Amino acid sequence: MLSVIRRSQIIGATMIDSTTASKIGTVEDLWIDELRRVKYLFSQQGYCPLDQISGVNRGVVSIYSHLLSVTQFYIHHSAQIAVQSKLSKPLGWVEDFLFDWHTGEIVAYLLAGDIASSYGGRAILFPKYIAEYRAGVIHVDEDTKHCLQDESKGLEGFLCERSDPVQSLVQEMIVRLHGLIASDDYPESVRLKIKQVSEDLAADYDHHILQEATEFLHEQWANLQQSIDRSIRHAQAALKTAWEDISSKKQK
């Protein structure tokens, strides 16, 4: 998935205003709601709702609006998630997790502790195997350890787990495809445009890196199309809001 990132990859990232490119703050934590979704990025300067993120790339988070100073009472820190049995027996803890910065959905948890001992001390738990989530504690069935996966195998389908050169090239290809792919394009058309952009870059990149990046985008063509459409709609909404703010100030 294109918009999935590890918690550890976004902590410490610089938040900038997507309009002025000025620094707003640094991501210090993520806050999660009772539905197990990431709700806000937290900085000493305030909170950023996920729907105000315009992009995440190489340690930089671009946002559409100013940070908020008020948040709901039911959210909690992402760094304090324990793993227990249904009878509250300690089994381990969440060392990291992957989430979709478009939706806030947590798509995989990296567990450590006794529950992951058979996997070298670190194992992947997918949300469908969680029995209950309450107040920063994941409760699982006693036999859940048999549903875990090795870290490398469990995360192989995510862009954030590819090498830095591949991630960088995929991002460059997405930028080039941004003005080419429309929301109503047929799958064949999207794949053809990916192929065209790949061929345009052939002289500038290592063949194996380009091949891996191209194959990844071919596999993720639907997510790519949705991501581009979402970015366009958010940019249009941000421009509309900015224009309304300017107009209201002129009238005062």
Rank of each mutant, 00 (worst) to 15 (best):
F158L: 03
Q226I: 08
R122G: 04
L91R: 10
G120D: 01
L67A: 05
C147Y: 15
V107W: 03
Q149L: 14
Q149C: 05
R122K: 13
V197L: 00
S78R: 03
M1H: 08
V197Q: 02
R7F: 02
T241Q: 15
I106T: 06
K193R: 09
I130G: 09
K23E: 11
Y186I: 06
I246S: 10
I228G: 01
I124S: 01
L125W: 08
Y186S: 09
L148F: 05
L201S: 02
I75C: 10
A116G: 04
R191G: 01
K195T: 14
A237L: 13
K89W: 08
E244H: 13
T14P: 02
V175D: 13
G154C: 04
W243P: 00
K153F: 14
V197P: 03
M1Y: 06
F97W: 01
V190H: 08
S22I: 09
V4L: 02
S22N: 15
V83E: 03
L217C: 00
Q45D: 11
V83H: 03
G113H: 09
I5R: 05
S69K: 13
Y74A: 11
D33S: 03
F126L: 14
L50W: 06
Q52W: 10
G157S: 14
K86P: 10
I106V: 12
G59H: 05
E34C: 10
D229M: 05
E28S: 15
D204K: 14
V60S: 03
W93R: 03
A13D: 01
H234K: 11
V83C: 05
L192I: 06
D100Q: 03
D96P: 08
N223Y: 12
A235P: 02
